[in-house]
Simulated assay, not measured.
Amino acid sequence: MTEEAEHGSGGVYSVEGKEFNRDSRYITTRIVAAPRPGTDDRPVEAGRYRLIAAYACPWANRAIIVRDLLGLGDVISMGNPGPTHDADSWTFDLDPGGVDPVLGIHKLKDAYLKRFPDYPRGITVPAIVEEATGEVVTNDFAQITEDLFFEWRGFHRADAPDLWPAGLRDEMEQVMWRVYTEVNNGVYRCGFAGSQEAYDDAYDRLFTALDWLEERLGRSRYLMGEAITEADIRLFTTLVRFDPVYHGHFKCNRSKLTELPNLWGYARDLFQTPGFGNNVRFDQIKAHYYVVHRDINPLGIIPKGPDLSGWETPHGRGSSGNKTQ
C-alpha cells in the first residue's frame, strides 16, 4: 500500500511499507553548451529560459543560490511560486493576479502539460521553462545546478566561485551523496516515517551523519576545504531549515542546529555570505511545511518561534574551521 505524502519539493514521495521513499525520476532533458546529437538537449542561450523556483523548497533553493553566486541573474530569468501549493501544482500566488508575469500561467503544471499532455508524476520545483514556448525543459534539481556551473560558464560573472574544483570532485561526490541520503533526504525520512521502527532508524542515521559533519567542520572552514563548493550549497539548504522546521515538525529533535557548535558557526558563515542568506525566506519556509503537510500538522498552525536573530551574529569561522583567522 502506498500513501502519497506530498509532491513538489524535489519529487513525489510516499510512505511505502512504513518507510519514506522519494520518487527520483525527473525529466532528463538538459540545457548544454553543445547539444548532443540524437538527444533532446536544448542549447545554452541567454534570455531563453526561466527558472521557476520556490524559496520555500530546499531543492529549489539550491538553484536560486547557484544562479546568484554565478551571476546568471541577467541571463536566466526567475519566477517564484508561493510557499503553499495546492494538491495539484505549485502556484504563482505571490504575483499580481496569481499569474507568472513572463509565462502568463497560474500553475506551474501548465508548463509541464504544455510539453507532456499526460505528464504522470508530481509537478516539482525547481523547473526550467522555455519562455517562448512555455514548455518545461527540465526539473532535475541536481543536474540543473551542475549544468549551471559547467554548461553556462560563458555567462558567469568574472569572480564566480569554482563550485566544482577539479582536484576535489571525486571526494566531493562522495560527500554530497552522504549529505543527500542521510541529511537532505534524512530529515524527510524522519518526518514521514510510517512506523516507530522506521522513524528510529531514520533518526539514528540522520544524527550519525550530523555528528560526522560536525567533526569534519572542526578541521576546515567548508566541507571541501577553504573555499565554498556545490557541497556546501546542498548542505546549507537543509541546515537553514533545521531549527525552524525539521527539529519539531519532522521530529529531528536530538539536537538543535544551534547546539552543534561547528555546524552552527558554519551555517552562519554561509548565511552571511552574499548569495546565501539574501535568498532565504524564513516566513515562506515555515508556511510551506506547516501548512502543506496536513498529515503531520492537521490544523495548519504555523509556530511563532524559534528566534532566528542568531543567524546574523558573528560566526567565528576562519581558515582552521571553528577558529577565527
Rank of each mutant, 00 (worst) to 15 (best):
E226N: 15
W90A: 07
M172I: 04
T39V: 07
I52T: 13
Y222C: 04
P35H: 05
F116A: 12
D307Q: 03
G79S: 15
E259F: 09
L206Y: 02
G11S: 09
L168E: 04
A53K: 05
P165Y: 12
Y49H: 07
A158D: 13
V280M: 03
R189A: 12
D88A: 14
I65F: 05
Y246L: 04
I128S: 11
F250R: 05
G265Q: 04
G218E: 11
Q272W: 09
I31H: 07
I301D: 14
W90M: 07
L206T: 07
Y203D: 00
D200S: 14
E182I: 02
P306T: 06
N262D: 09
D170C: 10
E182M: 09
R36H: 11
A202M: 09
F20W: 07
D269Y: 00
G8L: 01
P120S: 00
V125M: 08
R157S: 14
L213G: 05
D204S: 09
A54I: 08
R219A: 14
I296D: 14
R234H: 11
R254T: 02
R221F: 01
D295E: 13
M78S: 15
M176D: 09
W59C: 08
S309V: 12
D118W: 12
T258S: 15
H315Y: 14
D86I: 01
N139M: 01
W264A: 02
L308T: 13
V292Y: 06
R254V: 00
P58R: 12
W212P: 06
I144F: 14
S89L: 08
I128W: 10
A60C: 11
D159H: 02
V136T: 11
V240D: 01
F242K: 02
L70A: 00
F192R: 06
D201R: 11
G194D: 13
R219M: 12
A54T: 09
I233A: 05
Y266W: 08
G122K: 03
M224W: 00
Y266L: 04
Q174F: 13
V291C: 10
